[in-house]
Design a protein around this nucleic acid. Structure first.
Length: 487
RNA sequence: GCCCCGUUAGUCUAGUGGUUAGGACGCUGGCCUCUCACGCCGGAGUCAGGGGUUCAAUUCCCCUACGGGGUACCA
């Protein structure tokens, strides 16, 4: 029986990389007639949010990779949310403490920093120096009794090698002395990823761990953890990491990375699935357009290319166009009505239109930028700052791109997404950077609307939504870079 | 710095020792057509470099270069 899982961390927007990894997990489980589960890894109490969790589940449903067990539908090995499993991890940490697989560490952040700095200076590998690993048992007991804060660290073998059997690359060798004594339990009693992940994968019967390449270097810790518990290791498959155009790991700084965004601009879920299946993976006979079933038929990890593929939006658009053409006019009309011109979305922009139209037909041009769509920029729009009495000034291109990108970045954390919170954030950004508000708002307005006049900016941004707003700010900055203004 | 992974055109890829290195996106020329788009036909453009192994290397091995990831009480 093959059981796989997707285990997102609810710390932000639903990520396209999550969908990518989910696709392969789903494929592998279905190919073997097994199960695919969803587990929420919310052990980071500071960054995890309920909204993010809900958004991730919504997007995963949108992309159409149904899970067999999960926090929403339950299952035999729940709960499927790590924050509800704290005692399980504590029990396992305690077990490791007893068997010598782990130890308590009382080191302060300052001491750790000092150790790291020394190691950096010595040009050696960086890891915990094992100070508390050798503390006498009596001292440990008394410090625990006195309530001194501490973490639980894994007692990683200090010599020898650990081999990570990666199903896609073969055995990967690590020198044990290079590997850190990973913190397993934080001082707040919560587990770190490494503990929670291993414990859950075992308890939930996960047989095949299919995850992104960024995890390879921590896999020796996981391998040894399974060993310390006396459990058998699942199979590991490390997928290539999706990349930005510059080949760095895909990130929202350089690419729209949120599934919400793609849904919002009218990418069809079936096209997105197909596109993800084209990244790193390929079908025999050069077939490029295929659905989930076709991909499942003869699915083979041997066909996976290990080089990190660039997420190429132009090809996604082309693919999406193929799907649109194939569906025919009636279905297109239906899909647009059902997913794009929805009552909710029209309702969101209606308040903004109310004072600005005298006839219903005047609502239509508003749709072209309030609902989405590609904008046509000009220098006049983006860079010209008009003053009183026809006076004006040209905003330097590099200053404009800086303003736009910084704003996009700052807006990223705004939650909930509403006019007052957006305004507060932008105002704070201006104060912090010393930028004049008008100098920021003018290019922002142009970037999101491509119009000289719009409804009040923050209400406009609210109606547009975070994903579209950020993408347009970035698009405008890119446009300025690509089209420098000639004096 | 240290460890690990990767490397076929601008991008996604096929290819497992002998091929004119195939397909797709993008770019570009043309056809279709009232325009645009779609569609169709064509074009430019690639095996990172150097050593081996071999009769023969894009394919196997080593080194280098380059790219990426990790190096957290984040996942």
């Amino acid at each position: 029986m093959v059981r796989t899982r997707i285990a997102p961390s609810p710390t932000g927007d639903p990520h396209v990389g999550t969908a990518y990894v989910a696709l392969f997990n789903w494929m592998w489980a279905k190919k073997h007639g097994g199960q695919f589960l969803l587990r929420i890894e919310d052990t980071d109490q500071v960054r995890s949010t309920a909204e993010s969790e809900a958004a991730i589940m919504r997007s995963l449903r949108w992309i159409g990779l149904p899970w067999d067990e999960g926090p929403d539908i339950g299952g035999p090995v729940g709960p499927y949310r790590q924050s509800e499993r704290t005692e399980i991890y504590q029990r396992h940490a305690a077990q490791l403490l007893e068997t010598g697989g782990a130890y308590r560490c009382f080191c302060t952040a300052e001491r750790l920093e000092g150790v790291r700095a020394a190691q950096l200076a010595a040009k050696t590998h960086m890891k915990y120096d094992g100070h508390c690993r050798r503390l006498p048992a009596a001292e440990v007991a008394s410090r625990v009794a006195s309530g001194e804060p501490h973490v639980v660290r894994m007692a990683f073998p200090e010599t020898g090698i650990t081999i990570v059997p990666d199903q896609l690359r073969g055995g990967i060798e690590f020198q044990n002395e290079q590997i850190d004594d990973q913190v397993l339990q934080k001082s707040d009693g919560y587990p770190t990823y490494h503990l929670a992940n291993v414990v859950d994968d075992h308890l939930m019967g996960i047989t095949d761990v299919i995850r992104a390449e960024e995890w390879i270097s921590s896999t020796p810790k996981h391998v040894r953890l399974y060993e310390a518990f006396g459990w058998t290791c699942p199979k590991f498959f490390h997928l290539p990491l999706l990349r930005n155009a510059d080949r760095s790991k895909i990130s929202k700084r350089k690419n729209p990375v949120s599934l919400d965004y793609y849904e919002r601009i009218g990418i069809l879920p079936e096209a997105m699935r197909n596109f993800l299946g084209l990244l790193g993976y390929s079908m025999p006979n050069d077939q490029e357009i295929f659905d989930l079933d076709e991909m499942l038929q003869g699915f083979d990890f041997g066909r996976l290319n290990l080089g990190g593929p660039v997420f190429d939006r132009a090809k996604l658009d082309w693919l999406n166009g193929q799907y649109i053409r194939k569906m025919g006019p009636a279905a297109l009309a239906e899909r647009v009505a059902a997913t794009f011109l929805t009552p909710e979305r029209l309702a969101a922009i209606a308040p903004l239109a109310l004072e600005r139209v005298d006839r219903l037909d005047q609502f239509v041009p508003l749709l072209t930028y309030l609902l989405g769509g590609k904008l046509e920029y000009t220098h006049e729009l983006l860079l010209k700052l008009t003053g009183r009495k026809g006076a004006f000034e040209w905003l330097p291109g590099d200053e404009a791109t800086e303003l736009l990108r910084r704003t996009a970045e700052t807006l990223d954390t705004v939650r909930p997404w509403s006019a007052p919170t957006i305004e507060a954030t932008v105002t704070a950004l201006c104060e912090q950077t010393g930028w004049k508000k008008g100098r920021v708002l003018s290019p922002v307005r142009a970037a999101v609307s491509a119009r000289p006049a719009t409804p009040p900016l923050f209400e406009l941004l609210e109606a547009l939504g975070g994903a579209v707003t950020r993408a347009r700010l970035r698009d405008a900055a890119d446009w300025i870079d690509a089209n420098p203004r000639i004096e």
